[in-house]
Design a protein around this nucleic acid. Structure first.
Length: 281
DNA sequence: ATTGGGACCTGCTCGC
DNA sequence: TGCGAGCAGGTCCCAA
């Protein structure tokens, strides 16, 4: 599942290959099953009208969203959902299986958005019209960099009765964490994912923020997590390697690397949450 | 306002 | 061997 480290890895892989390149065409192949192509996207006509013959001037990331900045000032925004991949292939090569839309570039390559589960999303942002399709942005601060301080995090958790894990998954609180890194961050901080957010002690808040940053940075260095049930590959089509460094995620029944206790799972906010019952209180 | 749960979607794994 | 049930989860939407 592409979370912040996976999206950031893809961004870095693609940046030099798309920056300065002109989009010469947009194609949305019909789905063989006849259902929707991806979860949401502007009409094909609108896509063509606003993207064709525009150059990509930059590729940025916000939370789990990729932002293709165009020379028109428009921004093409892509969310990879659960199973999305962005791959560059030669123009003469057939698009990869499950390609939902692709952009032909003047370089002779196609930028393909493949997504078997169709949870992906594409948006346009235009200076004049604002968000086209719908507004993907009411995101909380980025956890990396200095945008988020322990005091900020403390304020956001204060008084909340929901499980701290549930709030870490809330993109309005922090942008970019998903199930894998929420679980891994809470393990490192020694916090039980079920603990009501407002009861996380003041001295634990900086530890939690530090754990979040460390986990994300380490995963970026490992080029992301390709979990056993995951579809994630980087911008070159390769798997990441952070799955070999996970402490709790998908390690149910295995022994804690720190204390040897058996890793357990519990359902929180509809998500399977992995934790060590001895290390996390 | 906050919180929880279901819907969306389909490839994969598991058990019979 | 084949088949159906259940699982995976990011985001949105609705209800309590």
């Amino acid at each position: 599942m592409p979370e912040l480290p996976e999206v950031e890895t893809i961004r870095r892989d693609l940046l030099s290959k798309v920056r300065g390149k002109k989009i010469t065409g947009v194609t949305i192949p019909p789905d063989p099953r006849g259902s929707r192509v991806i979860r949401r996207y502007p009409s094909a006509d609108l896509f063509r009208k606003r993207l064709k013959n525009r150059s990509i001037v930059d590729l940025k990331r916000r939370g789990k969203y990729l932002l293709f900045h165009l020379d028109s000032g428009d921004i093409l925004i892509i969310h990879l959902g659960m199973s999305g991949r962005l791959l560059l292939v030669a123009d003469k090569t057939a698009p990869p299986i499950y390609t939902r839309l692709f952009f032909r570039l003047a370089t002779g390559k196609k930028l393909c958005f493949a997504d078997p589960r169709k949870f992906g999303e594409a948006y346009l942002y235009s200076r004049e019209k604002g968000h086209i399709c719908c507004d993907p942005f009411s995101l909380g601060p980025e956890p990396l960099g200095d945008e988020l301080s322990p005091a900020d995090l403390s304020r956001m958790l204060a008084g909340r009765k929901a499980a701290v894990k549930a709030l870490l998954l809330n993109q309005k609180i922090i942008a970019g964490l998903g199930n894998i890194y929420a679980d891994e961050s809470l393990f490192r901080a020694g916090i039980d994912p079920r603990k009501p957010a407002g009861e996380v002690t003041a001295e634990k808040i900086p530890t939690l923020l530090e754990s979040i940053r460390k986990v994300l940075e380490e995963s970026i260095r490992s080029r992301g997590t390709t979990a056993s049930n995951g579809q994630y590959v980087d911008g070159k089509g390769n798997s990441g390697s952070f799955q070999f460094r996970l402490n709790v995620y998908q390690r149910k029944g295995e022994s804690c690397r720190r204390c040897g206790a058996e890793i357990e799972t519990v359902r929180i906010a509809g998500r399977t949450s992995h934790f060590c019952p001895r290390c996390q209180k």
